[in-house]
Design a protein around this nucleic acid. Structure first.
Lengths: 151, 151
DNA sequence: TTACTTGCAAATACTTTGCACGTGC
DNA sequence: GCACGTGCAAAGTATTTGCAAGTAA
């Protein structure tokens, strides 16, 4: 599903839930759905949304993101910088993240071997998997710039 | 390494760093090292430490835990309840967590297959692994009580 | 009209820090 | 004695909420 289709789906979802489609919600959804791979924080989402529709408040972004997460349109991540970050949810396949501890670069990946292993481990312990979160903290092999101590 | 050995190691570490061994630090370390598998939060650590040595303040627990984490004696986790949780660090092998989304139960596991896969994936993307965090959110198969809505 | 939304500001919830007083070494 | 440590209270951060005014349907 591309960004346009996702926005349409979100609009339908709002209607189906008796919620209203406002210019604020539309702008925020647009920002989210066109941020593939970026993992934006609330302040970042706010800044971009205000370019589309000025005057949007922080609380509206916060509440709209919760709406998007609850509706399955977005997923939240905590990468350890103390901020919650968001990305468009992928309804078909799940992916995980490689995060460089030096430069902060984030690369997404998916691996069926790990997914399968998780199901097996959960089953062995008397559980069924609902979701998972895997973050691999790494260092770039070809060198990268320290985000906290720029050269 | 058992709890007693870990406490000794921590005491030596303090000396080697020119830091002082106080009754507060000792009590907090004792609480941590005897909490295997519990993943205590700061308030919980504080409560238990105060039973050993009354009068300990929150800030002291906070600063001592940072000391323990920095020294490699403890590791931090964020399980999504908005609190940082701590457990004694295992110097030999890493383990991950299965977390029941309904009752909050946490089970630890380790899996060499997943560990090996992570190294391979990182290498394929031009990284070397520094650390990782894997949380599998599950549901108990034999039923459990909802922590937010007790029966 | 009417229920849902918004933006502001205030309230939370945790975490982190400044500082005067204590205390290991 | 002196440098490090402690406890309190206050300051940060990021998140969440109350409410009067605004708006989609």
């Amino acid at each position: 599903m591309n960004a346009t289709e996702r926005i349409k789906a979100f609009r339908s979802y709002l209607g189906s839930q008796g919620l209203k489609l406002t210019t604020q919600r539309d702008a925020i959804a647009k920002v989210l759905f066109t941020s593939e791979g970026e993992h934006l924080s609330l302040p970042e989402l706010l800044e971009r949304a205000q370019k589309i529709r000025s005057g949007i408040g922080y609380a509206t972004v916060y509440r709209t993101m919760r709406l998007l997460v609850d509706g399955g349109f977005a997923s939240e991540h905590q990468f350890g910088d103390g901020q919650t970050r968001y990305e468009p949810a992928d309804d078909t396949k799940h992916h995980d993240h490689l995060i460089c501890v030096r430069c902060g670069k984030v690369v997404e990946f998916e691996d069926p071997v790990i997914e399968a292993r998780q199901d097996a481990i959960a089953a062995q312990n008397g559980f069924e998997v609902v979701a998972h979160r895997l973050e691999i903290y790494v260092r770039c092999l070809q060198g990268c710039e320290d985000k906290d101590n720029p050269a």
